[in-house]
């Protein structure tokens, strides 16, 4: 039994290989980009617009609102990164209803890559917002003794982010696989529907956590008692 779509290799040349994770990712990327291109090529600025445009507008404005609610006052700056994160994970998980499809998010490599992106993006946004020194100082708060703990916390939360998504998606896949061998009728369908819900929840959790990490890195936009005490 293959635990990860990484093990399904289509082509390999030494270190370089094309496995199911990459192929399905490309397929998702193509569908998302082409679909966006098709829908946005006929955008209407009037009050009458297409259903697809309405759907995309609802999704994007909802993501913006969620980002803003977390504490980032300028959501459009982070929309590209966080929105893509959510849409990719959600779309990858929704597509599990397609027979033969292996979600890339069921690969620890993919979740690790996404967590790595978050791991890099958080300090980048922090540095852009408050400068390198200002951002580095935040690791020594409340005292410099906390510096190693903050660094460890940064790494472990990234690791947790990757493993959480991978574990949930992989476990969902495995449960469905096991159930198919035990009770091949009806019950796997229910679990697949449950898996859709779980996948969307995971996409939401992954994105919200990434947003919270970025918001935490924004010194002047940080919300809560910590930010108030800083002021």
């Amino acid at each position: 039994m293959q635990l990860s779509p990484d093990d399904h290799i289509f082509w390999q040349y030494g270190f370089v290989k094309i496995n199911a994770t990459i192929v399905f990712t490309w397929a998702l990327m193509f569908i998302m980009a082409a679909g966006s291109k098709i829908v946005t090529s006929k955008l209407s600025t009037g009050l009458k617009r297409s259903r697809w445009q309405n759907l995309l507008e609802i999704i994007i404005t909802t993501i913006e609102k969620q980002i803003e609610e977390v504490g980032l006052s300028q959501p459009q700056r982070y929309l590209s990164f966080l929105g893509t994160l959510f849409l990719f994970v959600a779309f990858a998980n929704i597509c599990t209803v397609i027979p033969g499809y292996k979600p890339p998010t069921g690969s620890l490599s993919t979740t690790a890559a996404l967590a790595l992106c978050v791991f890099v993006a958080v300090p980048l946004f922090g540095i852009v917002d408050q400068g390198a020194i200002g951002y580095c100082k935040s690791y020594m708060e409340p005292t410099f003794i906390m510096l190693p703990f903050n660094i460890i916390g940064e790494i472990t939360r990234t690791l947790a982010l990757a493993v959480r998504l991978f574990g949930n998606m992989m476990s969902g896949e495995m449960i469905i696989g096991i159930l198919l061998t035990i009770t091949p009728f009806i019950f796997p369908i229910i679990m697949t529907v449950l898996g859709l819900l779980t996948g969307l929840v995971q996409a939401y959790i992954f994105t919200i956590l990434a947003t919270v990490y970025i918001a935490a890195a924004m010194g002047n936009q940080r919300s809560g008692p910590e930010a108030e005490s800083k002021k």
């Binding site: 990484d6 994770t21 990459i22 990719f88 690969s107 620890l108 690790a112």
Partner: peptide
């Protein structure tokens, strides 16, 4: 469980997807 080439490829894919979207 982790294939580092795939990780790198997925990072690139993700960044490309960010640009495309």
């Amino acid at each position: 469980l982790i294939d580092w080439f795939t990780v790198i490829a997925q990072v690139v894919n993700f960044l490309v997807l960010v640009w495309l979207l």
